[in-house]
Design a protein around this nucleic acid. Structure first.
Lengths: 362, 362
DNA sequence: AAACCGTTCTGAACCGTTACGGTTCCCGTA
DNA sequence: TACGGGAACCGTAACGGTTCAGAACGGTTT
């Protein structure tokens, strides 16, 4: 531990017998003073142990913090274990790196209602990722007079946003399953609100989900299956608060325990889907002949497992958000960037076993 | 994009006809004013769109930024792809989260000599991870009058440090290989300096490596094998600047291309080792019967592959560094935390094929 | 009646820097 | 010689808060 700090720009100036402005210029605008004087300033600074202009004071004066805040209401343990989240983080970090600004991770796990961290983050803007629309941290961020970009969710009026077109993407997936002949499906989804509900999800809870992405995916699924003649009210949906492979497995266990007739498990993330695959294996169900499983995200592990999923460019998502934020100088209207998605049909989806082998495809 | 900001604590005070102190107290010391007045202050704040005390101004006055900086001279793409690095990051983030402080990622890829980002980071301390000892960013960090904790490397006099006992750990591994009978070994290592050298490493370069961890591992290996009668000068060492599985594979290719007689590849990281396994496979070499491969770190993927490696608690490393930093108030002497490591013998190490099957173990 | 008390609020100093708009001085030029 | 112009440096006013030592006040104790 080293600590001294007594030297300030002012004391340096006094020592040298020059004005503070000149010392400041020695650091920030070398062309404003003679090379000789500048050399002397820097030399004296070294001698006095002056570490250069204080970043905080500078930020106050210049109204630039040189950092972007990331609000992520997720347990870090999960955030850092989910490649989709890591991809976003990486993309954002890359954008920041390109611009030479720091990335400030705001401490805000779910459950922690302490918003102080948002208030005390010295940043020039925020990126919000995977936060429910009623989260107090979000409100705190929006109250701050700095630009904000939201990734995926929540959808907030008048705020820049980056994300895929979830309804379109998931509809494509639904049509793939419908085409294969699936009519008895079940859904595993990530948490829908700030309260823990590791259980089946009521229709009301589906409608009122505070995670926009999850809600819109469920809605799109409902629409697609209803159109195919399925009564959505009969479709079981199981929710998990935490987002791990094990949670996916337990969700699948719970769902299949009560609805063994289900022929396809639609998971709103690859992580959950990987868990579902594990559970299917444990039960001796063969995928896809006995059970179809689908995911969402298109992470590497999913690809390796041959999962049928919707791929989205997660890294690009983070990077786009960062660029958008850092470029938010000369625009007024909120901008929305919609990212392309791609249905990737793997080896985990096939017509249901109980069906005669019809092909309903186009 | 939202932008207004005209309201300040002063303007609020003026509007209310009270002193600035009182407004400040309304936010920071509710007990210092009557509930009624406080209510009025907050109410007026809302009406005026005052977002609460400015974090930067507050930081300036209180000399607390509420954030910890992380210096990591590594391409983020690699940092976020290596589970060892992610583990450290996660541990550090957890420690920060516990303390309610932010984690500020300083943009500093290798090659970028722009130290400004270090100077402009408003943080209460730094954690340094995986940085060569001659890196200018490091110098800039050490010049800042804030506490610093270094993870693994570099080893800097008088600065707190967290890391495993590399020499002991790698010696244990070396003895395992020696015990198995390996005498013709090759080494794949991560980059040794800031300059790119994707090639064989001279003895001099080994001695003068600026990455302390890599250097000390090489030294320990040299010592152990010399003791076993091996002339270290004859042991090929291949270096890779980037740290990906593919780089591990190409390094293995280069090494085995010139030294096909090698019976064991010692890799200084699991990532490289995984690449070596891939290359072995490509060549039709069976592991471990034709070739022994070892790693270092003990990441999940390595475990899955059955790699013989040295496991170290990466998450704990990050967390310990964070705690150390955040607790650095009441100590004077630099503290060193040495983390336990464990040799994990997997299925990728066995006696060399060319030997009669002796067992040299204890 | 004097001394003391806690509560509530204020004034002024300070945190360390940069922006802005000068001033001074020297040099070349008409 | 007067004048324009650039280089080098400076003084002042923010930037937006927090903090600390009191002041004012109504009431209680001695």
């Amino acid at each position: 531990m080293r600590m001294r700090r007594q030297a300030t720009l002012a004391s340096l100036a006094a020592e040298l017998g020059v004005s503070r402005t000149t010392v400041s210029n020695a650091y920030n605008r070398p062309d404003q003073l003679s090379p000789e004087l500048r050399r002397r300033v820097l030399e004296t600074a070294r001698r006095l142990g002056y570490p250069g202009p204080d970043p905080v004071a500078r930020s106050l004066r210049t109204r630039k913090a040189g950092a972007v805040g990331l609000l992520l209401t997720e347990n870090l343990s999960y955030a850092f274990r989910d490649s989709a989240a890591i991809g976003v983080l990486e993309g954002l970090a890359l954008a920041c790196e390109d611009a030479g600004v720091g990335l400030h991770l705001v401490p805000a796990s779910p459950g922690r209602d302490d918003v102080a961290a948002v208030h005390s983050a010295g940043v020039d803007g925020f990126v919000v990722y995977s936060v429910p629309d009623d989260d107090p941290h979000l409100a705190a961020v929006l109250a701050r007079p700095v630009p904000t970009v939201i990734i995926d969710q929540p959808q907030v009026e008048g705020v820049d946003r980056v994300g895929p077109d979830d309804p379109v993407a998931i509809t494509e997936l639904a049509e793939h399953l419908i085409g294969l002949g699936h009519r008895q499906v079940g859904v595993l989804c990530m948490r829908l609100g700030r309260d823990r509900n590791d259980d089946f999800v009521s229709a009301e809870r589906q409608r009122e989900a505070h995670f926009h992405v999850q809600r819109s995916r469920l809605e799109a699924l409902a629409t697609a299956f209803t159109k195919a003649g399925v009564d959505w009210a009969t479709v079981p949906v199981v929710e998990r608060f935490d987002h791990t492979v094990d949670d996916g497995a337990s969700a699948a266990r719970q769902l299949l325990g009560s609805y063994p007739q289900v022929t396809a498990l639609i998971c709103t993330s690859d992580i959950l889907a990987l868990g579902a695959l594990a559970e299917a294996d444990r039960r001796g169900l063969r995928v896809p002949s006995d059970l179809t499983v689908t995911g969402f995200d298109g992470i590497t592990e999913a690809e390796r497992a041959g999962l049928t999923t919707v791929h989205q460019p997660v890294l690009e998502k983070g990077r786009a958000a960062g660029k958008l934020l850092l470029a938010s100088a000369d625009h007024v209207n909120p901008r929305v960037i919609t990212l392309p998605t791609e249905l990737r049909i793997g080896t985990t989806s096939a017509p249901p076993r109980t069906m005669e082998q019809h092909w309903f495809g186009p």
